[in-house]
Amino acid sequence: HRLQSRWALWFFKNDRSRAWQDNLHLVTKFDTVEDFWAVYNHTQLPSKLSPGCDYSLFKDGIEPMWEDPRNKRGGRWLVSLSKQQRHMELDHLWLETLLCVIGESFGEYSREVCGAVINIRTKGDKIAVWTQEAENRTGVIHIGHVYKECLGLPPKMIIGYQAHADTATKSNTLLKN
């Protein structure tokens, strides 16, 4: 069963002795439902990765970094998780994120989606959906609503959207959603 898009899975493992880009590895690409599961079932769950690691799933041709032409004007819907949630919810939320993006759950705005990223960090893990145009307000909001529903997050929980241009240039304390 062919997917609408071909997807590439990337793995990042932090090694401070090497340049950021040298730590980023393309794992594989797939474009069918069956191959998605073959990849998913044979990769380590995020909760088992060591801190500093990321998985990224991006449409083929888009590199998982702000600098890519299809990311640089974009941003991300960010879900920040507490340390306790790694044990209980992290793997589930990542899988729901993957199903949401490969299934093109955002309707006509699915073309705005570039990919999804999970960051495993000691201070707290993060999951995000990256979109290509932060100024496309209608698309961004629609994607955010659908994404929140896909994750089953309670309505009162607020998730934020951050433009990559801000993430790249501002410190965490000045960063606005």
């Binding site: 069963h1 998913y40 299934g103 093109e104 759950s105």
Partner: peptide
Amino acid sequence: GKKQYDREFLLDFQFMPACI
């Protein structure tokens, strides 16, 4: 047409043996 799949449809394939 656009290939949109909901989560239940996608989940149905998780443990399906691969065709050879």
